[in-house]
């Protein structure tokens, strides 16, 4: 039972107020794109043991989507941030590095 903080409305709430939405920072590939790119966008997933960037929606709150950096082994949440970005912001990266020095970084 996770606790998450919505970066949009600032509320820290129960997992049941949120909906998970899978891996974050996927690049959309549209018509004409190569099979490999479309496949990576739609299906292939990092599914890491460790640091994971993922989408959540504050469904039963402000309704906003946001992103979280979370460890899939300990469930530690390194931070949450707005969805309107194509890669994790520097403070999130720093928070992860502080806790997981061996982490290879966002790729």
């Amino acid at each position: 039972m996770l606790i998450l903080t919505c970066p949009c409305c600032g509320v820290t709430a129960e997992e049941t107020e949120f909906s998970p939405g899978g891996e974050a920072h996927l690049k959309r590939y549209g018509p004409g794109s190569p099979d490999r790119d479309y496949e990576s966008y739609m299906f292939n997933r990092k599914n890491p043991r460790g640091v994971h960037f993922e989408r959540w929606r504050h469904t039963y709150g402000c309704g906003k989507w946001f992103l979280a950096a979370r460890c899939t082994i300990t469930l530690e949440v390194f931070g949450t941030y707005r969805a309107q970005t194509t890669e994790p912001p520097a403070d999130i990266i720093a928070a992860i590095k502080a806790r997981r020095p061996e982490w290879e970084g966002f790729a």
Partner: peptide, 13 residues
């Protein structure tokens, strides 16, 4: 409705 919000907030923000 959720589908619309997903695209508006996360892709075409």
């Amino acid at each position: 409705h959720a589908w619309m919000e997903d695209w508006l907030q996360c892709e075409w923000w």
